[in-house]
Design a protein around this nucleic acid. Sequence first.
DNA 1: AAGTTCGGCAAACGACTGTTTACTGAATGG
DNA 2: CCATTCAGTAAACAGTCGTTTGCCGAACTT
Lengths: 191, 191
Amino acid sequence: MLDAGLHLLADQNLASLGVREVTREAGLSPAAFYRHFPDLAALGVALVEESLASLHVMIRSVLAEAGGAEELIDRAVDVIEQHVREHRPHVRFLSRERHGGVRQVREAIDAELGRFAAEVGAALALQPVSRGWSEQDLRMLAELYVDHMVSTASAFLEAQEAEPDREERIAATARLQLRLISLGRRHWQGS
Amino acid sequence: MLDAGLHLLADQNLASLGVREVTREAGLSPAAFYRHFPDLAALGVALVEESLASLHVMIRSVLAEAGGAEELIDRAVDVIEQHVREHRPHVRFLSRERHGGVRQVREAIDAELGRFAAEVGAALALQPVSRGWSEQDLRMLAELYVDHMVSTASAFLEAQEAEPDREERIAATARLQLRLISLGRRHWQGS
DNA sequence: AAGTTCGGCAAACGACTGTTTACTGAATGG
DNA sequence: CCATTCAGTAAACAGTCGTTTGCCGAACTT
């Protein structure tokens, strides 16, 4: 059922999805839906959890890397690109419903992204570059990184469905932007 | 009719909007819709144009400002916050349909955001800080600014519908992030 | 072996949907 | 002053929708 919904949401919106549509795609009867979910919103929330599990893995994989700033940036962008390629339906779902019409789903996604930002912030605090940074500054930097990751993932998403030519340009731009942010980090003097 | 649609889209999705729904809200008969639009997608595109007109004014108002980096940042964040406050329905529509389920609308929004980035890039090229910057670097910076503006606007959007307490925290975070980017700019040595 | 939960079905309910058709009054233009 | 466009209407079409109900077999528990 989750798979059927995810497949339908490839070129559709959660708010415009229908119970019958999902069950038809899943090869079940309409009544079967209510055995598993009370609402379509509930199915949406379940999809959020499913999608975020893989995202969590990805973020940890980026944070766990060690090495110079340059290699870390290259690795991060590569991981994002590969993740979008391998979990396109999930990523598209998150990107589409993050500001979508179903409040419950929106809030679930935002809460989890906030948790990601906290995790990133904790990891940043351990890096030597962050010596002397206030907690507020760390949090602001973490949010900047998460927002940038989301933007980059969305850009990859739309690029991979069109010409794969633009894919490398997006990666190059993302790397430059991360380099610029990293540069600002090194010269930061606190707020 | 446009106003009726925009009002409906406050807590709904363009893809889940109905012809009858719109005409009912507008106080017209269902058939009247087809006098003005062939599709609901067409109404969406019309709303994109309407929404982007005010955005254009806002961007120019930010770019036209002169002064030190600090004052410029403060002014930019204030303008964004005020713009979201005064055009909440339009901004919400753009934020929601930017990655929404209607291809035509998505592409219209992205094309226009690209034009905004070009405009910002041209303005950045005129600033003394950008001496020696390649065109690619300027473009990359412009896109970073536009993406940051979009993220900040979305954050304001959701904050203003909840506690207005978070509003000032978002503004503060956005200002810090812009300061960090500005710092990276000053120490950039080309790609 | 008996009972209970689980996941599934067909059928039915009224309500709502997009779109077309034929018709109407007002404004506009020559 | 007549013709034409414009912006609206009511009515009807065949579908689709969400949800509830009663029923059923299989699987698990005890």
